[in-house]
Lab assay of single mutants.
Amino acid sequence: MTSCHIAEEHIQKVAIFGGTHGNELTGVFLVKHWLENGAEIQRTGLEVKPFITNPRAVKKCTRYIDCDLNRIFDLENLGKKMSEDLPYEVRRAQEINHLFGPKDSEDSYDIIFDLHNTTSNMGCTLILEDSRNNFLIQMFHYIKTSLAPLPCYVYLIEHPSLKYATTRSIAKYPVGIEVGPQPQGVLRADILDQMRKMIKHALDFIHHFNEGKEFPPCAIEVYKIIEKVDYPRDENGEIAAIIHPNLQDQDWKPLHPGDPMFLTLDGKTIPLGGDCTVYPVFVNEAAYYEKKEAFAKTTKLTLNAKSIRCCLH
């Protein structure tokens, strides 16, 4: 018999989150649709729960009410004593943790798909938090293969000092899905179709896995975050240069030392320094102006996964 890495157990509980950011409308629209008619997301033997994560922000069509829901799922915020004085999103995070967690427990949901849009030209993107997770690498390989020839990129946010504390991190297997470009507060049919297909293929993978299909060893190309880059700023902290036209919409493309990065209003080009080629992502993302992030630098690498098969009882 072929030796293989056996994944822990079959997958039982899956959640699909929309509206973690209330103005990213593809996930909101799909989740609302699936709450009314969820036939397309159901798979035999699998509990799939669509869920609106930040209903107040969705109602106002804004990213958040008090603070970013997708950055506060750490033990400090989840452990705060519940009171009306807490920011709305912290209270909501505790409610979500109660419903789908608790985080880092045996009772937490197996998989959470968190649906997002970006204003950046990132196409279909899967966000991975753990480079050693054979199950998710296999799932992402399946999704990428199923979507081809449509490109699907994998963004690895594993980093020693950049801690995200994402909404989906309460699950055993957290999956971020990011599709763009799409303006905030807008629905685009092409973007919706791409996100819908990503979810379909992900659920198909889980179904095949649960039925005992063995997935042979595989490898995927990923883009691992190195650092986030702020806009150049003046002495008052105001933005002093904008994304250069040569960099705009060039997510995932190589940016070499000396290539144009920013452009000042008086026409001066600010190039990339250093001696390493990087791959920019979230270029000129609207939501990241407040976070002082013009783009993120990534490096390209390959992740390998062992063969996996479900432990059938």
Score class of each variant (00 low, 15 high):
301 L>T: 11
95 E>G: 09
285 E>V: 05
163 K>C: 13
277 T>A: 15
139 M>G: 00
136 L>T: 05
289 Y>H: 12
49 K>I: 10
270 I>R: 04
291 K>W: 06
6 I>F: 12
79 G>K: 09
287 A>K: 11
170 I>Y: 10
22 G>L: 07
82 M>Q: 13
38 G>S: 13
299 T>F: 11
27 G>H: 00
12 Q>L: 07
224 K>E: 06
20 T>L: 02
271 P>V: 12
310 C>T: 06
12 Q>G: 12
50 P>S: 09
4 C>R: 12
119 T>K: 00
173 Y>T: 15
97 N>Y: 15
78 L>V: 08
104 D>R: 09
144 K>R: 14
238 E>G: 15
266 D>R: 09
6 I>E: 10
24 E>S: 05
12 Q>C: 10
29 F>D: 00
205 F>L: 01
14 V>N: 00
69 L>W: 07
152 C>W: 00
146 S>T: 06
29 F>Q: 12
14 V>W: 02
93 A>R: 08
54 N>P: 12
212 G>H: 06
97 N>C: 14
84 E>C: 11
156 L>H: 06
96 I>K: 06
139 M>K: 02
174 P>A: 15
35 L>Y: 11
161 S>G: 11
99 L>D: 12
305 A>P: 02
49 K>C: 14
213 K>F: 11
162 L>E: 11
136 L>I: 11
53 T>M: 07
42 Q>A: 08
218 C>V: 15
125 T>V: 11
221 E>A: 04
8 E>T: 14
292 K>Q: 13
70 N>P: 08
252 W>N: 02
210 N>M: 06
227 E>T: 06
115 L>F: 03
51 F>G: 01
146 S>F: 10
286 A>S: 09
234 D>P: 00
98 H>D: 12
155 Y>E: 06
179 V>Y: 02
25 L>N: 06
192 L>E: 02
129 E>I: 04
230 D>G: 11
263 L>W: 08
74 D>K: 10
297 K>Q: 05
85 D>R: 13
124 C>P: 11
159 H>D: 13
220 I>C: 06
284 N>A: 13
216 P>C: 04
3 S>W: 13
227 E>C: 07
42 Q>R: 13
168 R>W: 08
220 I>D: 01
170 I>T: 06
17 F>C: 11
55 P>C: 08
208 H>D: 11
73 F>L: 08
